[in-house]
């Protein structure tokens, strides 16, 4: 039986690693992982390639290895320590140019499908957003934080690429991701002892469980989906309720003060302030809830977790954190594993 080859870009990252872990379970799938970084822990059954995505040899690799699908998980969001070190030019190169070149290479090498992960923040939080944004709503998050600008650039490129080429591109847009790992901008915000809110504003929030992020990406891959889809858990809740459900109490801040702080030149993109609210303040002020009709009707994906369950998972993780002080998923260096691995390699060499 011919094995299908899937390339995961950004395999050293959270999403790449998790997707690989799921995919290696299927014997008919061969997984190649590509990343500029070395993986913290290697997963058995994954062939690792450490290289920059923007490499003229990429087409050759895709062609030679007969890659059928690419799960493109590279995006330097500025959340992790390493990505924060990147200059805006560097992250633009990685995020936007990288995606453009990947799509071009995939198309040239005859790859069937590419799956991209995006965010519903791309619509921007605006006072006149309808309660449910659809996939056709205009993308308005052009101003503000650089990563959203880059997402917008990618979305525009994908849309025009789609018009001219037959490559199937599934773009999955996720709202705030929540789950056990504790590593997403929303979870970072919620994990604080007293997450700030804007006084007198309480927009409706939407979340998605980590497992559904993985599940929907794999689903889009196996069904060879083409198009833009919103993936979100059922159930929306006001931000205050979300914070309370996580077991925190919100601290309302007078909004001109909060906006003013961010406008002070010295504090602009200050890592500390950005950590307190790791997204535009408008997302705490105006609605940006999306419609998920297309997810069920066209993609055929049914989320495994409701919003309530996702929030509960995260709350339980936070509770556990009180006792262990370690968020699962945020892996500490596993010394023993590295030692054993080195030892095994030595033995093999002998």
């Amino acid at each position: 039986m011919e094995r299908r080859t899937v390339l995961i870009t950004g395999i050293a990252g959270r999403w790449g690693r998790r997707l690989a872990r799921q995919l290696v379970k299927f014997p008919i799938i061969r997984v190649i992982g590509l990343d500029i970084r070395a993986p913290e822990r290697s997963i058995e059954g994954v062939e690792y390639i450490q290289a920059d995505l923007r490499n003229p040899l990429l087409v050759e690799l895709l062609r030679k290895e007969k890659v059928e699908a690419i799960l493109h998980m590279v995006f330097a969001s500025g959340l992790s320590k390493e990505s924060r070190k990147l200059s805006s030019e560097e992250s633009f190169q990685t995020n936007v140019m990288g995606t453009m070149e990947l799509l071009a290479a995939a198309n040239a090498a005859g790859v069937k499908q590419v799956v991209l992960k995006s965010t519903t923040m791309i619509y921007g939080a605006f006072v006149d957003n309808p309660v449910y944004l659809t996939e056709d709503s205009p993308l308005r998050a052009r101003e503000g934080m650089p990563n959203l600008r880059q997402r917008y650039e990618i979305a525009r490129f994908v849309a025009s690429f789609r018009r001219n080429h037959n490559l199937k591109i599934a773009v999955l847009r996720f709202p705030g991701i929540i789950g056990a790992s504790g590593a997403s901008s929303l979870m970072q915000y919620l994990a604080q002892p007293a997450p700030p809110m804007l006084l007198g504003f309480d927009p409706l929030f939407q979340v998605v469980h980590e497992a559904d992020v993985i599940g929907s990406i794999l689903h889009a891959m196996t069904t060879e989906a083409n198009g833009v889809f919103h993936i979100a858990a059922d159930g929306i809740m006001p931000l205050s309720q979300l914070i309370r459900r996580v077991g925190r109490q919100p601290v309302p801040i007078f909004h001109p003060l909060a906006y003013g702080l961010r406008r002070i030149p010295g504090l602009k993109n200050n890592p500390l302030l950005d950590q307190i609210v790791p997204f535009e303040l408008d997302f705490l002020r105006y609605p940006w809830v999306v419609d998920t009709t297309k997810m069920r009707a066209e993609l055929g994906y049914e989320p495994k977790h409701t919003a309530e369950e996702a929030v509960e998972t995260f709350r339980n993780t936070l509770r556990l954190k009180r006792y262990t002080d370690v968020l699962p998923g945020r892996s500490k260096t596993d010394g023993i594993r590295a030692f054993l691995k080195g030892r095994r390699e030595k033995e093999e060499q002998l």
Partner: peptide, 23 residues
């Protein structure tokens, strides 16, 4: 009204919706 603090969430919690054709 949706741009006004206090008023915006209050209207929403009381079942009022912003006048947009989509809504």
């Amino acid at each position: 009204f949706s741009s006004l603090p206090i008023v915006a969430p209050l209207l929403s919690r009381m079942g009022q919706v912003q006048a947009l054709p989509e809504n």
